[in-house]
């Protein structure tokens, strides 16, 4: 849900041993609260991106970003503005699906662009790549059938292609 105080940060880091624990350690040390975290490679083999969803009700997001920027292995930390970015997350969900409900569930999956990736005698396994809010909505709609298991990757984000940037990863303006 788009709650005030919740922000998505895109942290561009050097691909070095220990960098993830430096970033995560910073969050626990400074009392920042991580909601979701996704790490993966980028277009460059020596760089990774850590996408962090952070609850900033106690701290300003500026303070979080500045502390991240202080880490030597962090090349850039930016807040992703929801309006100017595409945010996606992958959900795998196993839902109880007795014969009489199967079609109904599959139709619902279609509406959410979810795919049935596996089926058992009494369950269906769906995969869905969508905005996290949409995944939450899907989960809610599936819950009456009983969700056996659900796992999400944590969100990743990228500035929209339609928004012109001088550089692909704009440097945060800390000079205010």
């Amino acid at each position: 849900m788009a709650t005030p105080g919740h922000h998505t940060l895109s942290v561009f880091v050097e691909n070095r041993p220990g960098v993830l624990s430096r970033v995560c350690g910073l969050f626990s040390r400074r009392g920042f609260n991580i909601e979701s975290l996704a790490v993966g490679p980028t277009e460059r083999t020596d760089r990774s991106v850590i996408t962090i969803r952070v609850d900033c009700t106690r701290h300003s997001v500026e303070q979080v970003v500045k502390q991240l920027d202080k880490l030597i292995d962090v090349i850039d930390a930016i807040e992703v503005e929801p309006d100017s970015a595409i945010e996606r997350e992958l959900l795998l969900v196993k839902v109880k699906a007795e014969a009489e409900h199967r079609l109904e569930i599959m139709r619902m999956a279609e509406v959410f662009n979810a795919r049935v990736v596996d089926a058992g005698a009494t369950t269906l396994l769906l995969e869905c790549v969508e905005h996290p809010d949409r995944l939450a909505a899907l989960e809610e709609l599936l819950s009456p059938y009983e969700i056996v298991e659900a796992v999400r990757t944590g969100r990743v984000a990228m500035t929209r292609a339609s928004i012109a940037n001088e550089t692909a990863r704009p440097k945060l303006n800390i000079l205010g």
Binding site: S60, E62, Q63, K66, Q67, D69, K70, I174, G176
Partner: peptide, 8 residues
């Protein structure tokens, strides 16, 4: 010289 000290 440390931006993180500003408005901390």
């Amino acid at each position: 010289i440390d931006p993180a000290e500003i408005s901390k």
